[in-house]
Simulated assay, not measured.
Amino acid sequence: MRITAIGTGLALCLGVYAFPSVGQEISEVIANADPAVGERLFRQCKGCHTVDQGGRNRVGPNLYGVLGRSVATSEGFRYSSALRDFGGEWSLDRLAAFLENPRKAIPGTRMSYRGLSDIAERANIIAFLNTMSNEPRLFSEAGVDAAEGETDVPAEDFGQLVIAEGVEETFYTCTACHSEMIVAQQGKTREGWDELLEWMVEEQGMGELAEADRNTILDYLAEHYNTDRPNFPRP
């Protein structure tokens, strides 16, 4: 496996649109990024993307080896004209800007993700994506050493959702597109939640959930956000 050094310059803006200048900042943050934390954060992306080698395209393309890959080149995926016209490669700077605000970074993209403003969280996700590659890049020698050893993953924050079995799957599935408050404010039967998930897949472009994850989420929602429960989490 070849490990190459990643540049710290500005992104290659070869397409129609230009990203905001975030290169130096992300280059500094990425040196201390934690792939283990990034893997956890990536759960909010799993509804639309696979990241394993040879993984299938979903609503979004497979992201294995995305760092350094040419834009709009996942085999078999139908990209928007905005992505095809943009061209170039997914550099560190480009990924950081796109994750922050996809529709601002590339107007016309079909990606519905609301974006991630915290640059440290974006760096963690990119660090994780970097490990899912035949040629992971070297951000810093210290970063490589940390990735090979044990990492101290911070406690997870599920916002307004009740902490119980299934909260993790529910939180990361729902917050890919909107705040968890939208979940907390509703009350539906299990059948009602099931119909809503089906609608999200058929009409809103959400990726199909694995049966086990779907049942876990439905069990959680039926238990804690049913019609006979308060619309907001219990104290």
Results as ranks from 00 to 15, higher is better:
Leu10Asp: 14
Leu10Gln: 14
Tyr17Asn: 13
Ala18Ser: 14
Ala18Pro: 05
Phe19Glu: 05
Ser21Met: 11
Gly23Asp: 14
Gly23Lys: 01
Ser27Glu: 08
Glu28Cys: 01
Ile30Met: 06
Ile30Thr: 04
Ala31Thr: 12
Asn32Tyr: 08
Asn32Val: 08
Pro35Ile: 04
Gly38Asn: 09
Gly38Ile: 08
Phe42Pro: 02
Arg43Ser: 04
Lys46Tyr: 06
Cys48Leu: 12
Cys48Lys: 03
His49Trp: 05
Val51Met: 10
Asp52Ser: 11
Gln53Leu: 07
Gln53Arg: 15
Asn57Lys: 09
Gly60Phe: 02
Pro61Gln: 10
Val66His: 00
Gly68Ser: 06
Gly68Asn: 05
Ser70Pro: 07
Val71Leu: 06
Ala72His: 01
Thr73Phe: 03
Ser74Ala: 15
Arg78Asp: 14
Arg78Ala: 13
Gly87Asn: 07
Gly88Ile: 04
Glu89Asp: 12
Ser91Thr: 15
Leu92Pro: 02
Asp93Asn: 13
Arg94Val: 02
Arg94Glu: 05
Leu95Glu: 02
Ala96Leu: 06
Ala96Gly: 04
Glu100Asp: 09
Pro102Glu: 00
Arg103Phe: 04
Gly108Leu: 03
Thr109Leu: 06
Thr109His: 10
Arg110Met: 01
Arg110Leu: 05
Met111Glu: 01
Met111Asp: 00
Met111Gln: 02
Tyr113Glu: 00
Leu116His: 04
Ser117Glu: 13
Asp118Asn: 15
Ala120Gln: 12
Ala120Phe: 03
Arg122Ala: 03
Asn124Asp: 15
Ile125Arg: 02
Ile126Pro: 00
Ala127His: 02
Asn134Leu: 13
Leu138Phe: 04
Ala142Lys: 14
Glu148Lys: 15
Gly149Ile: 06
Thr151Arg: 15
Val153Leu: 13
Val153Gly: 12
Ala155Val: 12
Gly159Trp: 11
Gln160Phe: 11
Val167Asp: 08
Tyr172Met: 05
Cys174Thr: 09
Cys174Leu: 10
Cys174Trp: 08
Thr175Ile: 10
Ala176His: 11
Cys177Asp: 03
His178Cys: 07
Ser179Tyr: 09
Glu180Asn: 12
Met181Thr: 10
Ile182Thr: 12
Thr189Lys: 02
Arg190Asp: 05
Glu195Cys: 00
Leu196Val: 10
Leu197Phe: 13
Val201Met: 09
Glu202Phe: 07
Glu203Pro: 01
Met206Ile: 04
Gly207Arg: 01
Leu209Gly: 04
Leu209Ser: 05
Ala210Cys: 00
Asp213Ile: 10
Arg214Leu: 02
Thr216Phe: 00
Ile217Ala: 03
Ile217Val: 12
Ala222Asn: 12
His224Ile: 11
Tyr225Glu: 10
Tyr225Arg: 11
Asn226Gln: 09
Thr227Trp: 07
Asp228Ser: 15
Arg229Leu: 07
Phe232Ile: 05
Arg234Gly: 10
